[in-house]
């Protein structure tokens, strides 16, 4: 193998991304941004328990950010795009790497969450698209009132089918995070016998918090706690 020549920034990026390690690092970094968003999103929405005014004011505040809101949206969109692109390319590589399957294969350490990352991912993506059409742009909403988020949430979740999809998708999201949060740290190179057990615990706690928090919204509407 000859000498490695990385003359431009583009060449450097291409060299990095071309490797199996580079693609995974891209997944981890974009994943971490999305993880933080998901937490912030859930915490913000907790205001639904404080009544219509509080939630609608919060929504108005976010809308009022104007360019700032769009900057955040663009960053998120870029992260989602890169996360999906690298996931897709890695998934293709995985199919390539073992063309003949095992007659018998057992697993010793793999968790359910780790095994289902390639399934939970696309389902969560489908959910996000539905979710945006449902509560952000309103096309998938039966009675959408721009600016009245509280009403939209109550009306949207009153449909048990829609609520069920939210519940299932958010459980999958939680499972995705259960493996993903710790996996991010490992992929960017954080592993230390002192901290890794805590990072694994953090990953599980993160998944539970997000899962319970998000599932609570449709449940609260369906059971009439929030109306």
């Amino acid at each position: 193998m000859g000498t490695i020549a990385l003359n431009s920034g583009l060449e450097r990026t291409a060299f990095f991304y071309q490797s199996v390690v580079g693609k995974k690092v891209v997944m981890a970094v974009t994943g971490s941004v999305l993880c933080l968003f998901v937490l912030g999103h859930m915490l913000g929405n907790m205001q639904i328990y404080q009544g219509a005014e509080k939630l609608n004011n919060y929504a108005a505040f976010l809308q009022g950010l104007g360019a700032g809101l769009w900057a955040v949206r663009l960053v998120l969109l870029a992260c989602v795009g890169l996360h999906i692109l690298s996931a897709y390319q890695l998934w293709r590589l995985k199919l390539d790497a073992r063309p003949t399957p095992y007659v018998k294969k057992a697993t010793v350490a793999t968790t359910y969450a780790a095994r289902t990352m390639t399934w939970s991912g696309p389902i969560v993506l489908a959910f996000i698209i539905y979710h945006l059409l449902h509560f952000t742009t309103g096309q998938a909403h039966p009675d959408f009132r721009r600016g009245d988020v509280y009403h939209n949430v109550i009306a949207g979740f009153s449909n048990p089918a829609a609520s069920l999809f939210y519940i299932v998708a958010n459980i999958l999201l939680a499972i995705h995070l259960y493996h993903g949060v710790w996996s991010m740290f490992q992929t960017v190179g954080v592993n230390h016998p002192r901290y890794t057990p805590w990072l694994k615990r953090l990953s599980k706690a993160y998944a539970w918090v997000i899962g319970i928090g998000n599932v609570s919204f449709p449940l609260a509407v369906l059971t009439g706690i929030v109306k």
Partner: peptide, 19 residues
């Protein structure tokens, strides 16, 4: 060099399953 070679040889990537 080693990471590039491992990629070229057709090995997959690590999903941190710990297997």
């Amino acid at each position: 060099r080693m990471v590039l070679k491992m990629t070229e040889e057709g090995f997959g990537y690590c999903t941190n399953t710990g297997e």
